[in-house]
Amino acid sequence: MTPASAKAYIRNLAREEGFDAFGVAAPDAIPLAAPRLAEWIASGAHGDMDWMPETAPRRGAPRGLWPEVGALVMLGLNYGPELDPREALAARTRGTISVYARGDDYHELIKGKLKRIASRFVPRAGGDVKVFVDTAPLMEKPLAAAAGLGWQGKHTNLVSREKGSWLFLGAIATTLALPPDAAEVDHCGSCRACLDACPTAAFPAPYRIDARRCISYLTIEHRGPIPLEFREPMGNRIYGCDDCLAACPWNKFAALGREARLAAREENRAPPLAELARLDEAAFRARFTKSPIKRTGRARFLRNVLIAIGNSGDAGLAGEAERLVGEESPLIRGAAVWALSRLLAPEAFAALRARHLPAEPDPEVAAEWRAAA
């Protein structure tokens, strides 16, 4: 095959697999990515994500990851929701899960699609390929912008004129030198809807995010207690946050996602917080089988659920938090203390504190009891 015919062939294969966006980027298409990444890491904005500085030398440019790469085929799969996800924030006794995590784990689904494309492409077109879905040190968003799939908006995520903010990205790196596509230009203009929508002011400037302030980071990647200043702004967001994505005006062109396995499971649309608080380890793993939520682990997930319980304003949920004060995990115990301090009358909380504080073995949890007094 000629490079042009090989590109056309892989585009057809991608269409057959249900991908909604296609483009090709050259390996040297993102020369500013490495220095910008280094500056971001140096500022500490990556928080607990230790793998960011560890993989930065490979992440900064595709050839740092794979020296033989000749082109990167960037693919987008639409997962547009049927309703604005912010509507669920009003139901304070129920949890809000980010749209991307309400169905099956997109990593496995998209990787399967990419592998099937590769298995048909290589025998016909030649060369070697590697497939990537979000877990390898590859900067998918700037590469997707370079390939013409969209542009990185002021919230740093990819925005498409046809699909809005709702695109999963996958990449097929090939040793073939396929013809690259033109990069998409920035269409944000003077709009700052995404920046103003952030409940924790996680954007110190347009096109720059401080992960340490981002609810998606705090509820998924952050390993310790949620910092006090972000607990109330979290509301009932128990896994991720869609506010900046949902605020984008380009979503008026977004369509409902077509991939059934990415559609929201009914139990993940707006699950009752009381129900989630009762999940033991086995029940947690069973409920979130094939879900990205499973990777976060029960302790972090229940930490988030307890913060939401504390924000619910429903004293009827205090019993769920009180039961979790006896959990083995300090992360869960500390969040339970905070939730109880918000839901119980001062006298009832003081009595509970008198029973539990003297026997509390963890200094951070003990500090939660004292701070909430």
Score class of each variant (00 low, 15 high):
1 M>K: 11
3 P>R: 13
10 I>E: 00
11 R>G: 10
14 A>E: 03
14 A>T: 00
16 E>H: 12
24 V>A: 10
28 D>V: 11
29 A>I: 07
30 I>F: 03
33 A>I: 07
37 L>D: 00
40 W>Y: 11
41 I>W: 05
46 H>P: 00
47 G>F: 09
47 G>D: 02
49 M>F: 11
57 P>F: 14
57 P>R: 15
60 G>D: 02
69 V>Y: 04
73 V>M: 05
86 R>P: 02
88 A>N: 07
89 L>C: 09
89 L>D: 06
92 R>I: 04
95 G>R: 06
101 A>I: 05
104 D>E: 14
106 Y>L: 01
111 K>E: 06
115 K>Y: 10
122 V>Q: 07
124 R>C: 09
131 V>C: 12
135 T>Y: 09
136 A>W: 07
141 K>P: 01
145 A>Q: 09
147 A>M: 06
147 A>E: 00
148 G>P: 04
149 L>P: 01
150 G>Y: 08
151 W>N: 05
152 Q>A: 15
164 G>N: 00
167 L>R: 01
167 L>E: 04
167 L>K: 03
167 L>D: 02
168 F>I: 08
172 I>Y: 00
182 A>Q: 10
186 D>K: 05
190 S>T: 15
198 C>F: 10
201 A>Y: 10
201 A>V: 08
203 F>N: 02
204 P>H: 13
205 A>G: 09
205 A>W: 09
208 R>Q: 12
211 A>F: 09
223 R>Y: 12
230 F>M: 08
238 I>F: 08
238 I>R: 03
244 C>V: 05
244 C>D: 04
246 A>C: 06
249 P>K: 12
250 W>F: 15
250 W>Q: 09
250 W>T: 07
251 N>M: 11
259 E>I: 12
263 A>S: 08
264 A>D: 04
272 P>V: 14
274 A>T: 05
278 R>I: 10
279 L>D: 00
281 E>H: 13
288 F>P: 03
294 K>I: 13
297 G>Q: 09
299 A>I: 11
299 A>E: 08
306 L>Q: 03
307 I>L: 10
308 A>D: 01
314 D>G: 10
317 L>T: 06
321 A>W: 03
325 V>G: 02
331 L>Y: 03
332 I>E: 02
333 R>S: 04
334 G>W: 07
335 A>S: 10
347 E>M: 12
354 A>S: 09
355 R>A: 15
356 H>V: 05
359 A>C: 11
366 A>T: 00
